[in-house]
């Protein structure tokens, strides 16, 4: 028995996207293999590393643990949709300035995860960043510079938003 393919209507990074998929295909598989959004990385493929993080209707999820058919009617934000039309998002810029990546495979997941955090909590403490990001594994950096980059980006975003002066 091979069930037929299903049509799914979504918005991905602000654009309407309709695709066909098998029910057994994960959102990650469809994003990567059918739609070309390879920024979400397939690493552990069972929810333990966070490299495939995306926002699904604004909620941070592992796209390997979502069936593509579940995305019907939903909006998806991938790492490809983070940067503004010109230049990089501040988080992306800060990751580069802080050397917060080495091999870079976990980086898209961390950026999406950090983006979700800062939307919810623009003023996270170091411990809050560490807790929020605990579902994103990095084996290269020891997390130190990632945490610093997120905290710095948060401070800069607040400054930009409100003209707030940074207290070191």
């Amino acid at each position: 028995m091979t069930p037929g393919k299903v049509t799914v209507h979504t918005r991905i990074n602000g654009e309407e996207v309709t695709f066909l998929c098998e029910p057994r295909q994960s959102l990650l598989e469809v994003l990567r293999m059918e739609l070309g959004f390879t920024g979400a990385k397939e690493c552990c493929n069972n929810g333990n590393c966070g490299a495939c993080s995306v926002l699904l209707d604004g909620v941070l999820v592992n796209s390997c643990l979502v069936l593509a058919v579940e995305a019907e009617g939903k909006s998806i934000l991938t790492v490809e949709g983070i940067a503004p039309a010109e230049g990089l998002h501040l988080l992306q810029q800060k990751f580069l300035e802080h050397a917060a990546l080495q091999c870079g495979i976990c980086t898209p997941g961390f950026i999406v995860s950090a983006y979700a955090l800062l939307q919810r909590n623009p003023r996270p403490s170091e411990q809050e960043v560490r807790r929020w990001m605990a579902g994103n594994l990095c084996r290269c950096t020891g997390y130190d510079k990632i945490i610093a980059a997120v905290l710095d980006a948060a401070a800069c975003l607040r400054e930009k938003a409100s003209g707030e002066v940074r207290v070191p």
Binding site: R32, T38, E80, L96, L101, G104, T107
Partner: peptide
Amino acid sequence: TRPLRPDGADKVTGRALYGADLR
């Protein structure tokens, strides 16, 4: 000194191509 890495933009935007990204 501490310049930005030359491959940085590709890696933070998800554009860098790892082996499993090739089609």
